[in-house]
């Protein structure tokens, strides 16, 4: 009997990835806002840089589907 069921493991993996993405975005976001305060034109670049780590969560989501017993 494993300590956690496959489903909980899947949920955990997505949750932890989201936490990591959030932590990464925290720093980028504050730097981006600082840059935008200096120069309004950097809004687009700031937006792009801020959302980059989000892919982490999506990749975790894919892992859930690749491990068949998890869903």
């Amino acid at each position: 009997m494993p300590a956690i069921t496959p489903k909980s493991a899947a949920a955990l993996s997505v949750g932890l990835a989201a936490l990591a993405a959030g932590y990464a975005e925290r720093g980028i976001g504050s730097a981006a806002v600082g840059a935008i305060a200096e120069d309004q034109d950097l809004f687009g670049t700031g937006l792009i840089l801020t959302v980059l780590p989000e892919t982490l969560v999506i990749l975790a989501l894919v892992v859930v589907f690749v491990v068949p017993s998890a869903f």
Partner: peptide, 12 residues
């Protein structure tokens, strides 16, 4: 792959 997989956010 990563770029392609990124689009699964649509379903999510």
């Amino acid at each position: 792959l990563v770029n392609t997989v990124s689009y699964t956010r649509i379903a999510a």
